[in-house]
Design a protein around this nucleic acid. Sequence first.
DNA 1: TATGAATGAGGATTCATTCAT
DNA 2: GATGAATGAATCCTCATTCAT
Lengths: 219, 219, 219, 219
Amino acid sequence: MTADPETRLRADARRNRDQILAAARAIFADHGPDVPMEEIARAAAVGVGTLYRRFPDRESLIREIARENFDRMLSQARAAADEEPTAWAALVRILRHSHELQLSIQLAMLSPMAHAVLQNDPKTEEFRTGLLRTIDEVVRAGQAEGSLRTDIDTGDVAILAAMLLRRVPKGRFTAIADLATDRCTAIMLDGLRAGVGTALPGRPLTADDIEPPGRTTPR
Amino acid sequence: MTADPETRLRADARRNRDQILAAARAIFADHGPDVPMEEIARAAAVGVGTLYRRFPDRESLIREIARENFDRMLSQARAAADEEPTAWAALVRILRHSHELQLSIQLAMLSPMAHAVLQNDPKTEEFRTGLLRTIDEVVRAGQAEGSLRTDIDTGDVAILAAMLLRRVPKGRFTAIADLATDRCTAIMLDGLRAGVGTALPGRPLTADDIEPPGRTTPR
Amino acid sequence: MTADPETRLRADARRNRDQILAAARAIFADHGPDVPMEEIARAAAVGVGTLYRRFPDRESLIREIARENFDRMLSQARAAADEEPTAWAALVRILRHSHELQLSIQLAMLSPMAHAVLQNDPKTEEFRTGLLRTIDEVVRAGQAEGSLRTDIDTGDVAILAAMLLRRVPKGRFTAIADLATDRCTAIMLDGLRAGVGTALPGRPLTADDIEPPGRTTPR
Amino acid sequence: MTADPETRLRADARRNRDQILAAARAIFADHGPDVPMEEIARAAAVGVGTLYRRFPDRESLIREIARENFDRMLSQARAAADEEPTAWAALVRILRHSHELQLSIQLAMLSPMAHAVLQNDPKTEEFRTGLLRTIDEVVRAGQAEGSLRTDIDTGDVAILAAMLLRRVPKGRFTAIADLATDRCTAIMLDGLRAGVGTALPGRPLTADDIEPPGRTTPR
DNA sequence: TATGAATGAGGATTCATTCAT
DNA sequence: GATGAATGAATCCTCATTCAT
């Protein structure tokens, strides 16, 4: 029975692992996950060999980055739900954790490569389920307390967040990227507020619309 | 004096060219512009050689797709601005031309590759300028008529649209993609409505924030 | 029994054929025979199709160019041998026909492609034999009359000419190319003059060293 | 501070690099520098990838081959100028280093591809200048000592050497190639000897005719 | 264990040749 | 018969992954 991979490593090996993850995190957030492995190794100041020893292929690296991030994201969302006085405040806090959330969304929903990799990864499932459940909770509470419009559902909120929080490719808009994200988030929140809206087309999108029960296995 | 490249082609060549453009349009919209050229050729049911005869490299194909799309997009926006009774209705109509607009946004703002290619392409400039000017017009009119909130500007609208209308990678959400886009657009519009909003952070983003005057230089 | 290909052609077809040959001659002399076929067609102001109708592949074009040139070259050499008062004068005249001779040498000895094509082409054989026989004649006469050094033979003269008369690639030396060729030829002739030389290494190279009897079929 | 690229390489990498250079040297000398990279790799018994790791593109391989060769060639020429008792002996020795000199000439003067690559390569410049200066020295000394004809100059010698020492394409003349080269060189030297010559056309060609001062700019 | 070298498959592009108009 | 379009094989180069040191 080996323990957590994170645990039983010699100090230097551990340091390498951490450098690799940090480098990959930064690069993935900026350019998405399809950069040359050598570039990641270089940014981590290790050889490719070392990178491949720690993560046998690109997929496993992506998977690890995703897990870390998902973990953090989920606990932040839980904390928001538990600690904020109103559901609305919780929603605002969740949606404004934009940096962490951005990477989550990159990985969970946007990059086709990451998406393919994470398909059927149990840890990802766990995260997705957990996060959706938390949002679900907040959404219902918000509607109950009268702060959130009632013609929407969890799926709407998740998709809206996913769309808004994708990182705009670096190089363009760099100067105003953060401000733009904040303003868009705020506008979105205004659009979600109870009582303001016109009728929406279709029907509320639920958590199941995003994670259809029994979707599963490709190939 | 040769006419439009589209015009003076033998019937079969013309058909192939159209098939190529159609294939590329579809593939670009779904996966962005960095798919193998062979795949595009296969989708168009021609050999690679034919693809390269029409478009000497990937860039020129991207450029052509972009121009077509930009042309259509711009004239639709102009028509909306000119024909709709209120500025608000014009804005709604523009933002709901989502299919065309989605590809525009992919090409003009999102894909790093497309972005690199279109840098300094005069036709693209023309489009960007024209479209921004049209939105500008609609935004001011909307604020004047009291339908659009006054703490935003053209840049906010453009960025918001860019973020919302990016296509979610196929394979995920396919079933509800269109509905989701429509609902998100509607929620965004509600958030833009005058009188509903809380205070936004920062300052209104203008057209110049997106297209800083005298940007140009690549690399 | 069909007549000469040159003979039974409609006027326009004939004109095309001539344009193609002229274009190919010029291009081959400057850049050697491995330029794109399209370029030759363009220079001849015909479509590739026409080029291929006249010359079913690159080889047959090369072959035709070579034959023409060889014919001219051979008759010039014969004329020199027959008309000049001394053997030395004939040799000088032959070696100074540099333009025609340059192309001959490009084709017969230098371009690997042309060389491969002309292997075993009967017309080439005929030319080579004829030219060597003529030089042979002149060489023996020159040695008999005491103008040409006696420790050389026909093969030496042919190889020396081949080396000196290769065209230097265009672009470099363009300005002085012709002068340089003339001066080198003159120096070479001085080196061939009777009585001046130091001992040469090895043995005289004969015509057979160049065209070993019964060499024939490759592959 | 890293040492020579040749120095700090793992033993096996070093061996591969040497094999690649040896293979390229041989192939370039015989066929010029535009052979498929795969063929070079095969001849060196490595994969293409390895070839490209060492030399990121064809150009850098050509450059390296050229530098090596130029270095050797230049020091041989200097040694000849310094060590031989007479200028004439030095000239003879220089022009007879034919193998090394052949490759130098292929690269420096003949192959259009190599020529393009070496344009503006400082090391090449250095070589060309150095070699021409050395020949210049020898030429003047030879004319002063009365062994070399006085109606020529450095440019004539360089061009003559360039023309004579081009390798004849393999496959033809293989048997007698070396003998032919030696004999032609000897005849050329006889033609350069003082006192023997008829008047040459034009004017002496100087080093500057070959390397016009301030030529540089490509394209 | 860390490193960086080696490998080869895959994607871009060119061009000789064939074929529909 | 002329044209220029279509095809696909060949070549360049990159990068994921494996392996020797």
